[in-house]
């Protein structure tokens, strides 16, 4: 199911924040277009940012955080930030 090296950890974070199973999150993510609407709300967005920062030991800047709206965009950002 994973498409990128960080997917498993990313889905774990999303699953924790959204209160859904990892499989369900992965399924929702599959349906999402790269620039489509996210399936989380503004508070969950903050929690996802915090969760990803903790999980990957990184810190997002404001302009990066604004873009972290969908799974494909997070995937792309992690690919750049996490080596």
């Amino acid at each position: 199911m994973s498409h990128a090296p960080h997917d498993a950890r990313m889905f774990k974070v999303l699953s924790g924040v959204l209160g859904k199973s990892v499989e369900e999150v992965a399924r929702l993510a599959e349906r999402q277009e790269p620039h489509g609407e996210s399936f989380w709300d503004s508070l969950q967005h903050i929690n996802i940012i915090l969760g990803l920062e903790a999980e990957f030991g990184i810190r997002f800047e404001l302009l990066e955080a604004v873009d972290l709206k969908t799974v494909p965009l997070i995937r792309a950002k992690l690919a750049v930030l996490v080596r």
Binding site: E37, D41, S42, L43, Q44, H45, I46, L62, A65, V66
Partner: peptide, 26 residues
Amino acid sequence: PAEFWKRWHISLSSYIQDYIFLPLYF
């Protein structure tokens, strides 16, 4: 309420989230 604002006037709430809420949070 958070879900309500994700379903109601989405273009305004997402605009406000990106251009006001997130900068304030940061």
